[in-house]
Simulated scan of single mutants.
Amino acid sequence: MMYGWNDGGWGIGAWILMALVMVVFWGGIVALVIFLVRRSPADHGEHPLVQTHHEAERILNERFARGEIEDEEFTARRAALRRKE
């Protein structure tokens, strides 16, 4: 014997619950994928422009240490780099 809609089932509540659980499940999967894609291994909390600034200042320090630029030029260029921060 077959049961009808009201005999032995949850009725429309089960369909609503299943739909909500499915939306939450797939929403969680999509959020996890987006989180993993946006997170790059190169990011260590610093913005790329800050990393570029540190690199530029390191190169300037090396050039000064090798004697390629004079004290006045070093000071002016370092001040210019720090103004751009």
Rank of each mutant, 00 (worst) to 15 (best):
M1R: 15
M1C: 10
Y3G: 09
G4W: 05
W5S: 12
W5G: 04
G9D: 09
G11W: 09
I12G: 12
G13W: 06
G13T: 06
A14K: 14
W15C: 11
W15V: 12
L17W: 09
M18S: 08
M18G: 05
A19L: 07
V21S: 05
V24C: 11
F25D: 05
W26C: 09
W26E: 06
G27L: 04
G27A: 02
V30P: 00
V33P: 00
V33R: 01
I34E: 03
F35R: 03
F35Q: 05
L36T: 00
V37F: 01
R38L: 07
S40D: 11
E46D: 12
H47G: 07
P48H: 09
L49C: 09
Q51Y: 05
T52P: 00
H54M: 11
H54N: 09
H54L: 10
E55C: 04
L60I: 07
N61P: 07
N61G: 13
R63Y: 04
R63I: 04
F64Q: 11
F64V: 07
A65S: 06
R66L: 11
E68V: 14
E68N: 13
E68S: 14
E70L: 15
E72V: 15
E72R: 15
E73N: 04
E73K: 03
E73A: 00
A76R: 14
R78Y: 10
R78I: 13
A79E: 01
R83M: 00
E85W: 10
